[in-house]
Design a protein around this nucleic acid. Sequence first.
DNA 1: CGGTATCCAACTGGATACTG
DNA 2: CAGTATCCAGTTGGATACCG
Lengths: 131, 131
Amino acid sequence: MNGTEGGESRAALPEDPCQVREVLGIVGDKWSLLIVRHLSEGPRRFSELKRAVDGISQRMLTVTLRGLERDGILTRTVRSVMPPHVSYELTPIGRALRGATAPLLEWSITHLTHIDAARAEYDARPDTPPA
Amino acid sequence: MNGTEGGESRAALPEDPCQVREVLGIVGDKWSLLIVRHLSEGPRRFSELKRAVDGISQRMLTVTLRGLERDGILTRTVRSVMPPHVSYELTPIGRALRGATAPLLEWSITHLTHIDAARAEYDARPDTPPA
DNA sequence: CGGTATCCAACTGGATACTG
DNA sequence: CAGTATCCAGTTGGATACCG
């Protein structure tokens, strides 16, 4: 078939495990994608994001924004006036990221109902461990 | 331009935050995507996955497989022979998930070098907190 | 306004030992 | 072979208080 060795083509995966790890390290946390999502609408201030990303603590907003800035996914612009004005904006890479997550979100939208049903069915199965 | 109301289009996001949370709850953990990735090559046995997904513990392989089975992303087939033979295979939804993650992986492949550079530059900036 | 610092509870996941 | 059970270290992230 397509194997170059005699086996069953075990090592033919297009990307390596490291890439999967890396991308999860960037966006696999609780808040990053939510922030990127909101910034896809345009630049936003700290307090705007705080209000938009529901339930996020001040600490986590700061920490997550710093991480995304460090990775070059967004930029942080400080206007040293009184009161302070800090604006966050996606970089081209950040916008590409947002686009790259779209299919995953679409998958989620398409299959969420089915997944919830699968869960309910699984949990209702008599041979399933109760906890 | 593209705004349908007079303001700055604050609530025009196509998907809601809940979807983002949900999809991260499914694939945002350390191992799920790695397992889905390997199963995209075809059905695999427990011990095959254990060897293929480098570094995973027996416990986490079991736990993650159970979660993916519960969500209807893969099926678990037991052949009660001696020794036991358990095979895992992606469902159509699982295969769709694999496809939906492809752009994200591509994004990662395309921009990883740039991201690493951005990190190094950020960490080298004199005004950056050392820890 | 936009943070930083500290503390701490909950969860994640690795190591190890045992089982049908 | 394919798990389960237990223990425990490390990380995540929420609450709170304070600062420039």
